[in-house]
Design a binder for these strands. Structure first.
Length: 499
DNA sequence: CGGTTAGCCGCTAGCGGCTAACCGGTGCGCTAGT
């Protein structure tokens, strides 16, 4: 009752969405909380509202700069001025000023990497954070182990901040992942608010294609046939680009590619065009998605199989935000999983590289303490990619505790174990592709849920009437007046600068 | 694994066809050099 008053006062809403009130109550009772709410529930409200009821500032750890900027923008638009994103968008001067005036802010957004900087952490410690929020908390499990190791250190950072009350928010985390989140954050005791990951409005389809060409043809056919807009996910930037070109040649005019290799202007532009309904389809890699709040995505096609079921769920979850019937179609060709295995292997150092590293250390009599300082040199000599080196570096950084007793075998074992974890996830994904059981039931079981009720057009095993997802009338969105993209981009960028 | 490409051979002067080698996703912060 009380909470609703604040909801109306600060956010002008009459009612909470499912899970919001429970999450907020749990936090206000002083319990560490892991909250898994469906996409589009308004997870940010779960920390914004408590922000007005607690004493110190709220610190929000966020995975993407663009996500932080969006949140800050939104909150400013709502009239909240005491909000800042501490990240590399700030010039060194702006950053220094922000840190100096840190007491001024009620909401502080930050990346794990920035929080890992000692001087920044020490400064934040002085403002006594009242609520420590981890947004998109599944990133801890998904990225922390190798891609962005600072995610794994959040527990350590949290302790340095005096173990503040903590709220972890996510839309997709299996029971194991939630446990991992709690462990990595050093939560001890915690409360869970868990809502189903099931999205009854999304039909789960799967098709087989014998060759690459067949798959490509079928994809084009589907895009022409299905009611849009839609997203197609690829595990290769090149194939995403080529397919987008191919689609335009086949008469699908508003098809664009999106991946991490594009410059940031193009990325912002394509994302905005998609959100504004100026694109029919985006050929994307996994870079596309987080922070895309588009109500009416009608289909998600997987040209390549994701590397884990959680990624699959996140990606198809971008459809049907408005709750209207939508379809997810994974097109599988025999051997597709090889690409996933290859990607998993490629991010870990191989035995050969480790041999070279140790040979070099011995030949040059390098003291282990100096290894980190010579990272660049070693990376070139041993042929490590940035991410591969990070795994070695992380291993080395833990050596101090072991009195620098380094041995090749334990490092190789660690790498082997990491690969095993990744491969197991790929195998699970592949198992789901091949299962003849109800696809929805199997996914829910993986998340520790039971299927309560089969929706119409549940999945390929239960039967789908694909005509239901057919384009019946020309999309009204496309008839909107043409927008000057250049001008639009300029205005978006201007808005960012102002923050 | 499967798609792309560079490079070579062969037969006849530019191009087809073959093979071997290579590559494949996600992002933060910082620094050097324009």
């Amino acid at each position: 009752m009380e909470l609703k008053r604040y909801l109306k006062k600060h956010f002008k809403f009459e009612e909470f969405r499912p899970g919001q009130e429970e999450t907020i109550e749990s936090v206000l009772k002083g319990k560490h909380t892991i909250s898994m709410l469906p996409t589009g529930t308004g997870k940010s409200l779960c920390y914004q509202l408590p922000g007005y009821l607690v004493d110190g500032p709220v610190l929000i750890v966020s995975p993407l700069l663009s996500l932080m900027q969006d949140q800050v923008e939104q909150m400013m638009a709502m009239g909240e001025k005491r909000v800042i994103a501490l990240n590399s968008f700030l010039s060194p001067q702006q950053k220094a000023k922000a840190l100096e005036e840190l007491e001024r802010f009620r909401f502080i957004f930050i990346s794990p990497e920035m929080l890992g900087i000692e001087s920044v952490l020490n400064r934040i410690r002085k403002v006594s954070v009242s609520l420590f929020v981890v947004d998109e908390a599944h990133c801890i499990s998904q990225w922390g182990y190798d891609f962005r190791p600072d995610y794994l250190k959040l527990g350590e950072f949290r302790e340095k901040l005096g173990q503040p009350l903590t709220l972890a928010l996510t839309a997709t985390a299996s029971k194991e992942v939630r446990k991992d989140i709690a462990e990595k954050l050093h939560l001890g005791d915690w409360n869970e608010v868990v809502y189903s990951v099931d999205r009854p409005a999304i039909s789960l389809a799967l098709e087989f294609a014998s060759t690459f060409q067949d798959k490509l043809d079928r994809t084009v056919e589907l895009v022409k046939y299905l009611k849009g807009p839609g997203i197609i996910y690829f595990s290769s930037k090149k194939v995403a680009e080529q397919t987008a070109v191919h689609m335009r040649e086949k008469g699908i005019k508003n098809a664009m590619a999106y991946h991490g290799g594009l410059d940031s202007e193009s990325r912002v532009l394509i994302q905005q065009q998609f959100i504004n309904g100026q694109l029919d389809v985006v050929c994307a890699t996994s870079a596309f998605g987080m922070g895309i709040n588009k109500e009416n995505v009608r289909y998600v096609i997987h040209f390549h199989m994701p590397m884990q079921i959680e990624s699959y769920l996140q990606e198809i979850g971008r459809a049907a935000r408005d709750g209207r019937d939508s379809i997810a179609i994974l097109i599988y060709s025999p051997g597709d999983e090889q690409l996933a295995y290859q990607l998993a292997e490629g991010e870990l150092p191989d035995q050969y590289q480790i041999e070279r590293l140790f040979a070099f250390i011995i030949d040059n009599q390098i003291v282990y303490k100096d290894l980190a300082d010579r990272a660049e040199e070693l990376s070139i000599i041993c042929g490590f990619t940035e991410i591969q080196w990070r795994i070695v570096e992380d291993y080395l950084s833990n050596l101090e505790a072991l009195d620098y007793k380094i041995d090749k075998q334990s490092l190789l074992q660690l790498i082997e174990n990491r690969l095993e974890v990744k491969n197991t996830k790929i195998k699970k994904m592949l198992g789901w592709v091949h299962t003849k059981e109800c696809k929805r039931k199997v996914i829910l079981e993986m998340f520790g849920e039971e299927l309560q009720e089969r929706p119409r057009n549940c999945c390929i095993s239960c039967g789908i009437d694909i005509d239901h997802y057919k384009e019946t009338e020309p999309s009204s969105e496309q008839s909107l007046a043409a927008v000057d993209w250049k001008q639009e981009l300029a205005s978006i960028l201007l808005m960012r600068e102002r923050i």
